[in-house]
Design a protein around this nucleic acid. Structure first.
Length: 898
RNA sequence: GGGCAGCUAGCUCAAUGGUUAGAGCAACUGGUUUACACCCAGUAGGUUAGAGGUUCGAAUCCUCUGUUGCCCACCA
């Protein structure tokens, strides 16, 4: 076996083999203990692979491979999202770069370009993700604009319309002037921006020279003013209500009204009302029956109603111009700096414009059931606290604006009868198919929000609503899926909406049992967000995100996977550090060498390792000593903890337990003891069988986290070649209990582990002692030292010293006090200071133990096991103190030290 | 303004209310006795953000304060 592990060669070769063997497709050809499905969050076709994808992909792969190992039939559903607005923007830029004006193209021409662009990038991310070694069945991948999936989306729209959940209406929406489309509340984020607060005077119509003053940050909307509002209880302005004042431009009289929405403490206590351009003002306008004056157009430029001073200007320019005009007319009394929150379009990064427009809306159905699913634990979140965020959103849910003024996406399946009012439901045809006399009708131009189609992902990928397709895709086996692994940033965008749509579309009542059957997944594991070393979110604009494929090139897929898992503590954001990935790589190397050592030892042939039965058959209870038994106990314990941790998606904790077992218990202890035994000329056959058992089991457990190196070592050790490691069944608890019993071990028995711990403690103390004296020489043991069976030789071999020498008293030699006894070494220098410090510490512990045991309340109320443990600890500490005091008292004189 | 989550060794993080709060990295000291220097052995490093409280017992539970990050809602 080669000295170095060449993962570059191994990873490419093995992945090609797995693909060639079609090893990732769910199949029903063997004994199966059930079905599992995992939905991969579909990446955008426009997306760029980032470290978050690596983490997400790795964690899902661990779950999927484990499910395979447990004999489950697993579907890992993948696919891509058409990415609506994001792709359209990219294609438009691309066209412009080629000298083509996108707006000059017909809908069909534009879609042709977009589809070509999409096809070029379609599966790029998924293919890149394969470098990680994910066992995802790409043959079943779905794209949200595939014909079949599109039918799912349109069917859902038609059905929701038919059930009265979708309506068309003129409402205040978030308008993105750059993209020229409405966007949902979720696509707007608030940003603190410096601005100015302008104080503007409106002259009273009936009393020239008398003014009402308002404060505004948006003077360019003054042409849209239709009223001034004050709070009804505000005494300062009570005399104004019901009178008229003069709008500065275009000049017109507007009423002064009273409305509760006004905060009398802000500004002057008077608010200008612009119903067409502010949500609050719109509500006020509705209450008072005020007209709407739209002065800003869809492209963010001032319209004709803005008057000749402002018309045609961009809204930013208009603001400056408005201020100039006001100043010139003496209507601007003052201005002050003011930092305020502005809604920003997530897509284009410019301030959104609240705008009244006709859009399609969804009144969310099944909100109560969606909430109950989480409240009752039918759908569980990990970590659970995200449930509060989810429920809070559901409690304050607003209708969802689902139409987009774009071309790229699912075109809304509504046709209007020409010449009819589009708001008249009788003039509409809402169906998957165009009306029979299609050419007379006009189809809706808008497309659906891309998240509308994403919300159908669990249903559409399994063929819904087409019964034939659902049967072909085994809907009944794979739905509901087991676990969704995603980021908490899309709880609203995606997770909640999938729950709502699934509850709505699958038939059932409101009982818990029915909800359990209809929810799209039983568990959602929210990963942390990956941040850089300064705590910032990884982002393209900051340029702080490493290139994922480079990371894999540098550390290997296994190294990257191991590093990411071990830095991803549940519930915490992940601080990315490449150092972690290097550690993962080192772990793989160490594993390689541990197996290499096993092959360098003689005594067996590969067929002795080719099955569990072969290995267990080589274990005989009478040939095993307590070190052998202990390592098997520890392996069993590590397995239990790994299983237990993964039940709760605590990947890091589980992997850490396996790592500790491998490094601390197996490599640094068990293997070293094995070497010592060989040096002592003892029979090592049993030890080799134990090594085989440990390695076989460890490789299997680790294979879900680091599939490549474990698979390669599995082959090298001759443990099996017939199928990929993730298809080899993992021995269950019954098997383990049987094997342990055969070795004379009760799984719960800790005695052998304790004996090992004691031996290791002595070994460590003696190594420390030798370090202190800075050299070799004989190691003495003082009277009262008690040796475990056979451990004297083992200890001296492990230390690489000669046999221990009995000594009646330590004299002024430095000593090590252990639970077995006291040891000493020759040294010229005085090592007693350390001893004195140790005694002091021990005495403090003894005092603390005694105080506890003297406390009646402690004895009465603490559990007996705790009291007993304290008593034993006191005894142990007392023994050590006595030994130390004896040493220091007889040989050195008590007075000298105390 | 409301909510959520943090605050533990120089750094990144662990620790079912129960013994003397642990790892890794970094630092320091030593080591290539044929698995591994991508390693091993050892040393040092702590008022668990602060203050109260509950408890026989608190890093852990409660209250308040400070502080950091995120989410939601926003006064024009």
């Amino acid at each position: 076996m080669e000295h170095d592990y060449d993962w570059r060669e191994v990873e490419d070769r093995l992945y090609a083999e797995w693909l060639a063997a079609n090893a990732f497709a769910p199949r029903d050809d063997g004994p199966s203990s059930g079905y599992d499905a995992i939905l991969m969050p579909p990446p955008n076709v426009t997306g760029v692979l980032h470290v978050g994808h690596l983490l997400n992909g790795t964690l899902q792969d661990v779950l999927v491979r484990r499910a395979w190992q447990r004999g489950r039939c697993v579907l890992w559903q993948s696919g891509t999202d058409h990415a609506g607005i994001s792709l359209q923007v990219k294609v438009e830029k691309d066209l412009q770069a080629r000298g083509i004006d996108p707006s000059s193209l017909s809908r069909e021409e534009f879609l042709g370009h977009a589809e070509r662009w999409r096809d070029c990038h379609r599966d790029r991310i998924l293919c890149q993700l394969q470098r990680l070694g994910i066992c995802c069945d790409l043959s079943r991948r779905v794209h949200t604009l595939d014909p079949a999936y599109s039918r799912t989306v349109l069917h859902a729209f038609v059905e929701l319309y038919r059930r009265g959940h979708i309506y068309r209406g003129r409402r205040m929406v978030n308008w993105c002037p750059v993209s020229g489309t409405a966007i949902s509340d979720e696509e707007v984020f608030m940003q603190r921006r410096p601005g100015k607060l302008f104080y503007v005077r409106y002259e009273m119509v009936d009393a020239p020279g008398e003014f009402v003053e308002v404060a505004t940050t948006r003077p360019e909307t003054i042409p849209g003013d239709v009223a001034i509002a004050v709070h009804p209880a505000d005494g300062r302005h009570a005399n104004l209500v019901g009178r008229l004042c003069r709008r500065p431009f275009p000049e017109a009289p507007i009423p002064i009204i009273a409305d509760e929405a006004v905060d009398p403490k802000f500004g002057t206590g008077a608010l200008k009302i612009t119903p067409a351009h502010a949500a609050v003002d719109y509500a006020v306008g509705e209450r008072h029956g005020l007209p709407c004056r739209e002065v800003i157009g869809p492209d963010g430029h001032m319209g004709i109603l803005a008057g000749q001073e402002l018309a045609g200007l961009d809204r930013e320019e208009a603001r400056e111009r408005a201020v100039e005009v006001l100043r010139r007319r003496g209507l601007l009394s003052r201005e002050e700096k003011y930092e305020h929150s502005v809604g920003i379009s997530e897509r284009s990064g410019v301030p959104i414009e609240p705008r009244l427009s006709v859009q399609w809306f969804l009144r969310y159905p099944k909100v109560d059931e969606a909430a109950r699913a989480v409240e009752r634990g039918l759908l569980r979140f990990f970590p659970a606290h995200w449930g509060k965020t989810y429920l809070h959103w559901l409690e304050n849910i607003q209708d969802w604006c689902i139409s987009r003024q774009l071309r790229w996406g699912h075109r809304i399946p509504v046709w209007y009868r020409p010449g009819w009012d589009r708001n008249d439901p009788h003039g509409r045809h809402v169906s998957l198919e165009a009306p029979p006399d299609g050419e007379d009708w006009e189809q809706e131009d808008d497309v659906l929000d891309t998240w509308f189609s994403s919300a159908l992902w669990p249903l559409g990928t399994l063929g819904w609503p087409d019964g034939k397709a659902m049967a072909a895709k085994h809907f009944d086996c794979f739905y509901p899926t087991s676990t969704l692994v995603t980021g908490p940033d899309i709880i609203f965008f995606w997770v909640a909406r999938m729950v709502i749509f699934s509850l709505e579309f699958l038939p059932g009542d409101a009982s818990d049992a029915s909800i359990s059957r209809r929810i799209p997944f039983r568990h959602v594991h929210f990963t942390g967000i990956i941040r850089d070393d300064r705590g910032r979110k990884m982002s393209k604009s900051l340029g702080n995100s490493p290139e994922p494929l480079d990371l894999i090139d540098r550390h290997g897929a296994d190294g990257v996977r191991f590093g990411l898992i071990s830095s991803a503590v549940q519930g915490q954001d992940v601080q990315f550090s490449e150092e972690r990935l290097a550690q993962g790589q080192h772990f793989c190397t160490k594993l390689w060498h541990a197996c290499r050592l096993r092959l360098l030892q003689d005594g067996t042939t590969p067929s002795d390792r080719s099955s569990w039965e072969a290995i267990v058959g080589r274990l005989h209870a009478d040939e095993l000593n307590f070190v052998d038994r202990a390592i098997l106990c520890q392996l069993f314990d590590a397995r239990l903890r790994w299983d237990g941790a993964l039940e709760f998606y605590e990947f890091q904790a589980g992997l850490q337990r396996l790592e500790r077992f491998f490094r601390d218990d197996y490599c640094d202890w068990y293997v070293e003891v094995g070497k010592a035994r060989r040096r002592l000329g003892l029979d090592c056959r049993a030890s080799l069988a134990v090594q085989d058992l440990v390695l076989r089991h460890l490789l299997q457990l680790l294979s879900s986290a680091i599939p490549f190196v474990t698979q390669e070592l599995w082959h090298r050790l001759g443990m099996g070649t017939e199928r990929p490691l993730h298809m080899v069944p993992l021995p269950d608890g019954d098997f383990w209990n049987g094997a342990l019993e055969r070795c004379g071990i009760a799984p719960a028995k800790e005695e052998d582990v304790d004996r090992c711990a004691a031996l290791r403690e002595v070994l460590k103390a003696l190594r420390a002692l030798r370090t202190d004296v800075g050299g070799g020489g004989p190691i003495y043991y003082l009277p009262g030292t008690r040796w475990e069976d056979g451990c004297r030789e083992l200890l001296s071999t492990l230390l690489g010293c000669g046999d221990f020498v009995a000594l009646p008293a330590a004299g002024d030699r430095p000593v090590a006090v252990t639970s077995w006894g006291t040891f000493a070494m020759d040294h010229a220098a005085n090592g007693r200071e350390k001893l004195v410090a140790e005694l002091g510490q021990l005495r403090r512990h003894v005092a603390a133990n005694r105080a506890k045991l003297a406390d009646a309340a402690f004895l009465a109320k603490a559990p007996p096991a705790v009291v007993e443990a304290t008593r034993q600890l006191l005894e142990k500490n007392l023994a050590l103190v006595a030994r130390l005091e004896g040493l220091l008292g007889t040989e050195c004189g008590r007075g000298k030290f105390f």
